[in-house]
Deep mutational scan, measured.
Amino acid sequence: EAHAAIDTFTKYLDIDEDFATVLVEEGFSTLEELAYVPMKELLEIEGLDEPTVEALRERAKNALATIAQ
């Protein structure tokens, strides 16, 4: 499951495998979680700032909209 989540994140969020791995290690496994989890939870991840989190959430929401079509 972790590998599938990493693949999904790299494909749809335009991030590298290392960043995707950090997200999975922090407990995220779906685009929905990244799109809708409280921003505070993402900001608790070391190295993430508000602009990065906002961009990540926007990419996740856009990916979900694209997949739904």
Rank of each mutant, 00 (worst) to 15 (best):
E1P: 12
E1Y: 02
E1C: 08
H3N: 12
A4Q: 13
A5G: 05
A5Q: 07
A5E: 03
A5L: 11
I6L: 07
I6K: 08
I6F: 04
D7L: 07
D7C: 09
D7V: 08
T8N: 12
T8M: 15
T10Q: 12
T10K: 09
K11Q: 11
K11R: 10
K11W: 07
Y12V: 05
Y12H: 06
Y12P: 00
D14K: 06
I15W: 01
I15K: 00
I15T: 02
D16C: 06
D16G: 10
E17N: 11
D18Y: 13
A20G: 02
T21V: 10
V24S: 05
E25L: 15
E26K: 15
E26S: 15
E26C: 09
G27M: 02
F28K: 01
F28I: 09
S29H: 14
S29D: 07
T30M: 05
T30Y: 05
T30Q: 05
T30I: 03
L31G: 01
L31R: 00
L31M: 05
E32Q: 10
E33F: 04
L34D: 01
A35F: 08
A35D: 02
V37D: 06
V37N: 12
P38T: 09
M39F: 08
M39A: 11
E41R: 12
L42S: 03
L42P: 03
L42G: 04
L43M: 11
L43Q: 06
E44W: 10
I45G: 03
E46N: 12
E46Y: 10
E46R: 14
E46I: 13
L48G: 02
L48W: 07
L48I: 11
L48V: 10
L48H: 03
D49F: 06
E50R: 15
P51D: 13
P51C: 09
P51V: 13
T52Q: 10
V53T: 06
V53M: 10
V53P: 02
V53L: 12
E54C: 08
E54D: 09
A55L: 14
A55Q: 12
R57K: 14
R57M: 10
R57N: 05
R57L: 11
R57G: 04
E58S: 06
R59P: 00
R59S: 09
R59H: 06
A60H: 01
K61A: 09
K61Q: 09
K61R: 13
N62G: 11
A63H: 05
A63M: 05
A63E: 03
L64V: 07
L64H: 03
A65Q: 10
T66W: 04
T66F: 08
T66S: 10
A68R: 11
A68N: 12
Q69W: 00
